[in-house]
């Protein structure tokens, strides 16, 4: 089957380039940050089959690190974002070393427990500002000359970060490493019997996922000029699961669609107050019951069915010998 991923991605970027003409850039930046977060999460659940229920620790903690280094230490924006990303990578390595020894629900519980530890650390530590968080993080010029104080300027930088993150994940999935990941997801004992030390592959995937989740969180802190406890709560870990499921687990574009839907809902249904959570719950249930492949997954399945129908007929007509 022909691969349309790159043309679709190019079209998506083209749309996003002109989107600020119609849509409020801060909202778009929020969607992009969460889309990158969900993409990072999807690398783990969709391509390795590991359900992490603690990804907020990378997202939220990286946000604190970038906000703190930029505000308190006066680091340049780009270095602050990189610092947040780097700390998330180290945190990912530590959490990964502990968590990948377990599978299934135990893996999810270990990641959740670790994330709760990070949450309490953030709650108690001095530098995070407790309940207030770190506010009024300055937006200094990137690389010393790119002014990002205006949202529209910063939007294009966030778009570039998002695109880079997407391409890193896309390449990872379509690399020799990605092939081994798929083999592990499909049949782990068989991958072991072919001589692959699967834990090492899972660990690298975990660290990559944590790093990119950190990049998303670190960027978000600069967007909102704020790092707060919300981003390290277990609810945030749950939200990224929801985004990925709604969009389509294990699909290339699903997490982006899922993040866009959930963030849009939260924004436009904000008037309902706490009821947003109930509405989200209902959507979650509907997705699991009726659209298990998620938005993008269902579209892709439909497309395959349509092209397959034609392709198969041609195949049989062309090669009657293959039926033997």
């Amino acid at each position: 089957m022909k691969n349309y991923d790159m043309p679709i991605f190019a079209a998506l970027i083209a749309i996003l380039l002109v989107a600020p003409l119609a849509i409020y850039p801060v909202f778009l930046m929020k969607v992009l940050c969460f889309a990158l977060f969900a993409l990072a999460f999807n690398l783990l659940i969709g391509y390795v089959g590991l359900l992490s229920f603690g990804h907020a620790m990378f997202f939220g903690f990286a946000a604190y690190v970038s906000a703190y280094t930029v505000k308190a230490w006066g680091w340049p924006t780009e270095i602050g974002i990189l610092a947040g990303t780097g700390v998330a990578a180290v945190l990912g390595l530590i959490a990964g070393l502990i968590a990948i020894r377990r599978q299934g629900i135990y893996f999810a519980m270990v990641t959740l427990a670790l994330a709760q530890m990070v949450f309490f650390f953030c709650l108690q530590a001095k530098f995070t500002g407790g309940e207030d968080g770190i506010q009024a993080v300055p937006r200094r010029p990137v690389l010393g000359f790119i002014d990002i104080t205006s949202d529209i300027h910063f939007y294009y930088l966030v778009l570039a970060i998002f695109a880079a993150g997407f391409l890193i994940i896309y390449r990872t999935i379509h690399s020799p490493f990605g092939q081994v990941l798929k083999a592990i997801r499909e049949n782990e004992p068989r991958a072991i019997s072919l001589g692959y030390h699967v834990d090492r592959y899972k660990l690298l995937a975990f660290v990559l996922s944590a790093t990119l989740a950190g990049l998303a969180g670190a960027t978000k802190a600069i967007v909102f000029q704020l790092a707060s406890l919300t981003d390290v709560t277990w609810q945030m870990s749950g939200e990224v699961v929801l985004m990925t499921l709604v969009g389509g687990m294990g699909t290339v574009f699903g997490p982006i669609a899922g993040a866009a839907v959930i963030i849009t809902m939260q924004n436009y249904l904000a008037g309902f107050g706490e009821w947003v959570l109930v509405i989200q719950g209902v959507i979650f249930v509907i997705t699991v019951l009726l659209f298990r492949r998620g938005i993008v997954g269902e579209i892709a399945a439909l497309a395959t069915r349509l092209t397959r129908g034609r392709g198969e007929a041609g195949h049989i007509a062309g090669n009657p010998a293959t039926t033997s």
Binding site: P176, Q179, E186, Y201
Partner: peptide
């Protein structure tokens, strides 16, 4: 087998170890 991979990919998984690039997530497949 690896059920959702093609026959070619199934066999290639075994072959690719010898290339020593199995951790190279930056390299094209």
């Amino acid at each position: 087998t690896f059920p959702h991979l093609t026959l070619l990919e199934n066999v290639r998984i075994a072959l690719q170890r010898q290339l020593g690039t199995s951790f190279h997530f930056w390299r094209s497949e």
